[in-house]
């Protein structure tokens, strides 16, 4: 079993030039003939942050200097996560011609989606850093190393959900529409533009406490915004959530690796 997994990962690594070039194609295609280029991937979270700041920093009585980085960090994670989820639904269809040509591990097509989104996420993260440093100084530098496990976790999470939803969408194409509706609902149940404490104060804290994405967000926010380590509870919850997703993804792959082509 372990041997099999290592072999599989090895095979993915051997094909790295292939899927990395596909990521490059995707990026270039997306910004073909656009003035801002990759800047567009920043415009969305930045513009949304502006809107949320104007409306909600007043409504919630928040200081705009701490609220803006808070919202931007939430939106950066959110656009990564929804991006992976919605784009991965198409990953096996856009890779169909390759799948029919030459055998390659099926995990590389969701990986293509995930890496593309991860690049956008990292760019957004750089903007976030600049924003934090300019609003509240360099107090977080000492804790930035804690981002390494967070980013790894996000990557595994993205890849796993991409595999799961990519495969489901091949079998049931209704999935991509359900994902869009579901993500909209989930957006309001995740502490992106409000603080988890606000819900807890009103006695409905369970919504965010049960939400594994809220735990993932804490792993991003604590080190960057507060210069602190995320709580043990959040870390444990986020890690187990990702572990469960990765397990489901592996089992899914093991089941469909040899059969998916018949469904395409």
């Amino acid at each position: 079993m372990i041997l099999h997994a290592t072999q599989y990962l090895n095979e993915i690594w051997r094909k790295r030039y292939f899927w990395m070039s596909l990521v490059k194609v995707d990026l270039r295609k997306r910004y073909r003939r656009s003035v801002l280029g990759i800047g567009w991937s920043l415009m969305h979270p930045i513009a949304m942050t502006g809107v949320f700041c104007i409306v909600f920093s007043q409504l919630f009585g928040q200081d705009i200097l701490t609220y803006a980085p808070f919202v931007l960090s939430g939106l950066a994670f959110w656009s990564y996560f929804t991006g992976v989820l919605t784009e991965s639904c198409q990953c096996y269809f856009s890779g169909e011609a390759y799948i029919r040509q030459s055998p390659a591990p099926l995990a590389i097509y969701p990986l293509r989606t995930t890496v593309g989104m991860a690049i956008h996420f990292v760019v957004a993260l750089v903007v976030l850093m600049v924003l934090v440093w300019s609003t509240s100084g360099f107090g977080n530098l000492a804790s930035l190393w804690m981002l390494a496990p967070t980013l790894l976790l996000f990557f595994v999470l993205g890849w796993s959900v991409a595999i799961i939803f990519g495969v489901i969408n091949v079998v049931f194409q209704d999935m991509q529409h359900m994902v869009q509706v579901g993500m909209q609902a989930l957006f309001y149940m995740t502490p992106i533009f409000y603080r988890a404490q606000m819900l807890r104060d009103r006695g409905i804290g369970w919504i965010v406490d049960a939400n594994p994405l809220a735990a993932c967000l804490e792993m991003l926010r604590k080190p960057i915004l507060e210069g602190q380590a995320p709580s043990m509870a959040a870390t444990a919850y986020a890690c187990s959530f990702v572990l469960v997703m990765a397990t489901i993804a592996s089992l899914t792959l093991a089941k469909v690796e040899k059969r998916l082509i018949f469904y395409l």
Binding site: K15, Y17, F18, S21, L22, V25, R28, K29, R32, A97, Y98, R100, Q101, S102, A104
Partner: peptide, 20 residues
């Protein structure tokens, strides 16, 4: 089958070769 229509011929040579 299996070409990226938005990429140039040179690039497609590479992609296809990498797949192989």
């Amino acid at each position: 089958l299996g070409f990226e229509l938005d990429a140039s011929g040179w690039e497609n040579i590479k992609y296809r070769a990498y797949l192989l």
